[in-house]
Design a binder for these strands. Structure first.
Length: 589
RNA sequence: GGAGGCGUGGUGUAGUGGUCUAACAUGCCUGCCUGUCACGCAGGAGAUCGCGGGUUCGACUCCCGUCGCUUCCGCCA
C-alpha cells in the first residue's frame, strides 16, 4: 500500500506515529511560510502541514500543489496547538507534519466544484460524474446503497432464501412496458430483450423447487423517464412457495426494516398497517396515499345530486362524483393562488376547481348562490369547516376526481408545510382490482400482470363483471411513494386460461408469449407468491433525499441518455450488417 | 406525443427595453502573508448572455422558431 492510514483515520491516540496518507487536495492554505493542505479521500479529510523550517523540500513541493491533485504525504502525527483544534473535523485534533510530499498525479481545474454546498447543474454533474461522486454526500449515498444491499442479502439469506441470477437476454413480451431489444447475430431477424423484471423466471424457479428465491435484479424498461423512474433500475426481487399474503408481508417487512437500519440507522416499526385499494382511493384519491398528514378527501356526491349548481348536479347525473378538501386556514390564500390550484388540477383533467371561503358569517364564494342555506350548512358540517378554512371541490368522473384531488392534496401538503419530517409511514395497499379497463383498446388489461391470482370470492364475476374482480395483489407504499408490488400467483392452468380469456388472449397468443411458463406449470407448480421492491426508490427514502439519481452511481438523464459515455451512440455500418439490421431511413444519419 | 420552468465567465447566481463597454460569489493565474481550516490581503485573466430569426432608434431583457437540461400529463403490468 502507498498509505498507512486513510484521511479519516487519525486521532489523538495516533500522536507520535509516522504515517503516510494518500488523497486528493481539498484545499491549500499558503501562509507564505507554513502551508496547510487538506487531503481528502473516501474516509475523510486530514490536515497536512508543510513547514519550510522543518522540511524545506516538501514545502517547496507544496507551493506547486493545486486543488484535486493526488498526493502522498509522509510525516508524523502531531497534536494541534489547543487554539488550532478544529471541532468541525473528525481529525481536527491532530495534523500530519509533513517531511515528504509526493505528487502522484496533477489535475486540471475541476469542471465542477467538489463541494456539497455548491452543487452544479444536473447535466454538468452527469458528464463529470466521477468528479460529482467525489463529494462527501455522494460518497455517503454509495455507502448507504452498499450497506442496505448487504443487509438485505444477509437478512434474506438468514431466512433460507437463495440468491439466484436470472438471464439478462430474454424473450420479448409485447404487453406491459416497451422492451429494450438486442439483435441476434446468429439468428437473422431475431432479437433478445432485456428483462423488464425477472417475473417469469422467478416463477420457473418456484416450479424448480427453489422455494425461496431473491435477487437484486437489474430491470430494463424503454419508457419515458420521470424523476423517480430510470430506464434501468434495481429491484429487490423475491418469490416464495407455499405461502399466502401474510407470509410475503412478513418477509418484505423484515427486508425493509433491515435496509433502513443498515442504511441510515432508522428503526421502522412492524408490522406495517394495511389498507385496501378502495379505502386508499376513497380517502386519499391515490393508490399510494401519503398518510403523514390529514386533509383527507370529503365526499359531497349525495349532497350535490339535486343541488342548484349545475356543474355539480350534472357530474353526479353522469355517474360522477363531487369531492373536495378542507384546506385548514386556507381562506387567507390570495385569489391568484387559489386560481393556481385550479390550474394544478387541470393537469389531471379536472375541468376546474370550485371553492368556498369559510367565514364567521358562513360560506362565501361566487357559487354559494346556487345552493340553498340547508345545502350550504350540510356542506359546512360535512367538511367540519371552521372560519378561516377554504373548501375546494372537483366534480367529475370518479377517476378524475380521485386523481386530481389526490395530487392536489399532496401538492398542498408541501406548499403549506403539513408534512412532518422524520416520519416513515409504510402501509400495505391490498385488494387491487385484477383488471383495468383500457378505453382506447376497449379491452380489459391486467392491472399488475397476467399471473395474479384472483380473490377466491370474486372468481364468479371473472366473466360477468371483470371490473369487480379483485386480485391477490398488493403494493407497499412509503410516504406516498410506491415502493413495490407483488401478488400471489396463479398456479392452476384452468384459472390461468380464464384470466387470459378476460384480457382477450387466445391460446395461440399465450403459447407464443409465455408458453414456456404455462408448460412448466403443467409439471407440478407449487402455490407461490412474491414481491419486488424498487431498490432505488427505497434508498432515496432511506437517505432522505429528493433526487433518485443521487442514489444511482451512473444514472441516465430524463431523455434516457447516459451523459458519462454519451450513450446511446451510433454503431458502425459493419455492426449493422453483422446484426442483420439497418436503419429505417438512410438519411437519418 | 403534449404542457410548464430554466439556459448569462470553469462552476453557481444577479440583472426583466437604454450609463450592461454585463454584476456578485466561488474557482483560475500572479504577488504578499508562519497557525489556517469557506484562511486573509492586493492585483489580473476569463462571457460574442444556448443557437437562429423577428419587433424596436436600441434586445441578456419582448415575440417566433430551434436545441439542451429539468418537472409534470400521456406512457410506465
Amino acid at each position: 500500500m502507498l498509505r498507512t492510514h486513510t484521511c479519516g483515520d487519525l486521532r489523538p491516540k495516533d500522536i507520535g506515529q509516522e504515517v503516510t496518507l494518500c488523497g486528493w487536495v481539498q484545499s491549500v492554505r499558503d501562509h507564505g511560510g507554513v502551508i496547510f493542505i487538506n487531503l481528502r479521500d473516501r474516509y475523510g479529510e486530514s490536515q497536512v502541514v508543510c513547514d519550510p523550517q522543518k522540511d524545506p523540500e516538501s514545502h517547496k513541493v507544496a507551493e506547486k500543489v493545486r486543488k484535486e491533485w493526488v498526493l502522498q504525504a509522509h510525516g508524523v502525527v502531531d497534536a494541534r496547538p489547543a487554539e488550532s483544534i478544529n471541532p468541525n473535523m473528525a481529525t481536527g485534533e491532530v495534523e500530519v507534519t509533513c517531511d515528504r510530499l509526493v505528487i502522484l498525479s496533477t489535475a486540471k481545474t475541476p469542471a465542477l466544484e467538489i463541494d456539497d454546498s455548491k452543487v452544479a447543474n444536473e447535466d454538468v454533474r452527469m458528464k463529470y460524474r466521477y468528479l460529482d461522486l467525489r463529494r462527501p454526500s455522494m460518497q455517503r449515498n454509495l455507502a448507504i446503497r452498499h450497506n442496505a444491499a448487504q443487509a438485505v442479502r444477509e437478512y434474506l439469506s438468514s431466512l433460507g432464501f437463495l440468491e439466484v441470477q436470472t438471464p439478462l437476454l430474454v424473450r420479448s413480451t409485447p404487453e406491459g412496458a416497451r422492451d429494450f431489444v438486442v439483435p441476434s447475430r446468429l439468428f437473422p431477424g431475431k432479437f433478445y430483450a432485456l428483462p423488464q423484471s425477472p417475473q417469469l423466471y422467478k416463477q420457473l424457479l418456484m416450479v424448480s423447487g427453489v422455494d425461496r428465491y431473491f435477487q437484486l435484479a437489474p430491470c430494463f424498461r424503454d419508457e419515458d423517464q420521470r424523476a423517480d423512474r430510470q430506464p434501468v433500475h434495481t429491484q429487490i426481487d423475491l418469490e416464495m412457495s407455499f405461502v399466502d399474503e401474510s407470509d410475503v408481508f412478513c418477509v418484505v417487512e423484515g427486508v425493509v426494516k433491515a435496509a433502513f437500519k443498515a442504511g441510515a440507522d432508522i428503526d421502522v416499526s412492524l408490522p406495517f398497517p394495511r389498507m385496501t385499494y378502495q379505502e386508499a382511493i376513497d380517502r386519499f384519491g391515490l393508490d399510494k396515499p401519503d398518510t403523514r398528514f390529514g386533509m383527507e378527501l370529503i365526499d359531497y356526491t349525495d349532497l350535490s345530486a339535486n343541488c342548484g349548481f349545475s356543474v355539480f348536479a350534472r357530474a353526479v347525473e353522469n355517474g360522477g362524483q363531487v369531492k373536495g378538501l378542507n384546506i385548514k386556514g386556507g381562506s387567507s390564500l390570495p385569489r391568484r393562488e387559489i386560481d393556481e390550484l385550479g390550474e394544478f388540477v387541470k393537469v389531471y383533467r379536472a375541468k376546474g376547481l370550485a371553492w368556498m371561503r369559510v367565514t364567521d358569517s358562513g360560506l362565501e364564494s361566487s357559487i354559494t348562490k346556487f345552493f340553498t342555506d340547508g345545502e350550504l350548512e350540510a356542506i359546512r358540517q360535512r367538511s367540519k369547516a371552521e372560519p378561516g378554512d377554504l373548501l375546494v371541490f372537483v366534480a367529475d368522473s370518479p377517476r378524475i376526481v380521485a386523481a386530481s384531488l389526490g395530487w392536489l392534496r399532496n401538492h398542498l401538503a408541501r406548499k403549506l408545510d403539513l408534512i412532518p419530517s422524520g416520519v416513515f409511514n409504510l402501509v400495505w395497499i391490498t385488494d387491487f382490482p385484477l383488471f383495468d379497463w383500457n378505453e382506447e383498446t376497449r379491452q380489459w388489461e391486467p392491472m399488475h400482470h397476467m399471473f395474479t391470482m384472483p380473490k377466491e370470492e370474486d372468481m364468479p364475476f371473472l366473466h360477468s363483471d371483470p371490473g369487480r374482480v379483485r386480485g391477490r395483489l398488493y403494493d407497499l407504499v412509503l410516504n406516498g411513494v410506491e415502493l413495490g408490488s407483488g401478488s400471489i400467483r396463479i398456479n392452476r392452468c384452468d384459472i390461468q386460461q380464464e384470466v387470459m380469456k378476460v384480457v382477450g388472449m387466445d391460446a395461440a397468443d399465450a403459447e407464443r408469449r409465455f408458453g414456456f411458463l404455462l408448460r412448466a406449470f403443467e409439471y407440478g407448480a407449487p402455490p407461490h407468491g412474491g414481491f419486488a421492491i424498487g431498490f432505488d426508490r427505497l434508498l432515496t427514502q432511506i437517505a432522505g433525499i429528493e433526487n433518485m439519481r443521487d442514489m444511482i452511481p451512473f444514472p441516465y438523464n430524463s431523455a434516457g441518455v447516459s451523459l458519462v459515455d454519451d450513450s446511446p451512440s451510433e454503431i458502425d455500418s459493419s455492426q449493422w450488417r453483422e446484426l442483420h439490421i439497418r436503419p429505417d431511413s438512410v438519411q437519418r444519419k
